[in-house]
Design a protein around this nucleic acid. Sequence first.
DNA 1: TCTCGTCTCGTACGTCGTACTAGACAGTAC
DNA 2: GTACTGTCTAGTACGACGTACGAGACGAGA
Lengths: 285, 285
Amino acid sequence: MDTDDEDLWVPFLAARPRDKRAERLRAHLREDERRGQRHPPRRAAALSRDEIVRTAIRVADAEGADAVTMRRIARELNAGTMSLYWHIVSKEELLDLMLDTMQGDQENAEPSGDWRRDMQDVARQSRRTLHEHPWMMDLIGSRPPVGPRTLRNIERILAYFDGLGLDMRLAIDISTTVGTYVMGVVLREVQERNSETYTEQMLGELSETDREKVIGEFTERVRATGRYPHLVEVMSAGYDPDAAETRDARFEFGLDCLLDGIAARIAGAVPPPATGGGAAGGRPG
Amino acid sequence: MDTDDEDLWVPFLAARPRDKRAERLRAHLREDERRGQRHPPRRAAALSRDEIVRTAIRVADAEGADAVTMRRIARELNAGTMSLYWHIVSKEELLDLMLDTMQGDQENAEPSGDWRRDMQDVARQSRRTLHEHPWMMDLIGSRPPVGPRTLRNIERILAYFDGLGLDMRLAIDISTTVGTYVMGVVLREVQERNSETYTEQMLGELSETDREKVIGEFTERVRATGRYPHLVEVMSAGYDPDAAETRDARFEFGLDCLLDGIAARIAGAVPPPATGGGAAGGRPG
DNA sequence: TCTCGTCTCGTACGTCGTACTAGACAGTAC
DNA sequence: GTACTGTCTAGTACGACGTACGAGACGAGA
């Protein structure tokens, strides 16, 4: 990414630094970058913002979002805790930078001419990235959505719809909708993964048969109430909707459904909004 | 909800209490409940688990998830901080209970006979609930998905597909898919809301015209790079994809797309009682 | 030499979750 | 009555956390 673009944080984030020290820091960073382009670096800096962010990402990858503390990152870098604060305004900013950095590592492909395939690829790749870095889902909810690299990716996605004569608003809505679907799926899947490691911790000492017994007892307890016939049917069929094997299929299922509906709307053969089974034929061939 | 069902936590959560005190607590709670049914309560207890959870929810509603600390909840109840720990094993459990309680407050309607309308209602109601209690999204990601009231709601949803001769596995996948879509949408919308309050804090002192100037400068900066033609088109058209007015429409748009695709698959899956070949595959690679 | 801008870092404060512990109060048992 | 026990409340203390503050170190220009 061009260094110019580093400044393309949406206004409220660009305005983030609150105190004078931080403002000085910002200015110096920018100057430093520019000078760094012309001359060789004046001295080997022991710390840099990028190094801090990468370290934080590495720690988060290995041990989860909770392991990212300022003291821990500093220890990892053999630096004093407060040294980090010269390069970074607050932990909040560090988390924002971590997310935006991941966006940069996951740049969307050039348009192939087939918007549907492109969107599928984006969706699959987002999902893969989010799974490789599950801490992202912990942060994403409580944090504003857009840094510069995110902008770059949105721009790419919008280009997928070039030549279809689409209203740009529709293109944005489509892109957002697919994006939100992926977020929902991964949110759920991360939950499930958390449950699994949790189960591991809780039932870990039990033998396989004991574990099955615990689960069997649970099923039995549900059945005994008589109030959950459908769930009992699912459970005794041995179908675990959250099992790892079914996840990919479930993801593709929902994605296909969504893209079918989108394709219908793009084709302009939009059925009357929202009632009944009239859309059954909406699948393109 | 029947008190019997209170115990229907999935096994790994039922097994949660780790130390002896907590195990004693669990046993006592259950006994207490049973005896409480027969006799009038032996004395007016100053604290109860339910009271604690409700208070935590109230605090979270008013001031967000971060405001929920053990000390704060205790203060709110005029109790000692550690008193809470007799009724609740850990803060983790409190958060789980908060989420499950919300599930109970949002019970799905009885089947109407029109699955599509029912699913739409469920989706809209989930979204509404999550927006009324935005702290839920902060917790949901890092926490296992199922308490007893969640089970109840899933059971209800599965009943919507009765009479269609649907494979229960397909019904589960459909329900999950719609659920995850809603989660994704709300996750995004909560992000946007956070951004807005953030903007409020950052640019709050500025006059309306100054604020527009800031945003205009940002647009100009993006345009100047020459690398974001689509985004510039959107921004200068004055279309803010995250604006409050467009959110409902965007939500309904995606939901309709998704339900169209699902309807097609239901229509395709019903005639042959197929093994998902017609339902899940279908798309040429 | 001295100052100044840049960068590092030790100390300290107020927050958090919660382990440990000492009780208070009500109920039986003697 | 006294003693014991089970139920519940609550104070103190510990080790984490984010970070404000301020004392320096170090190279470059005066």
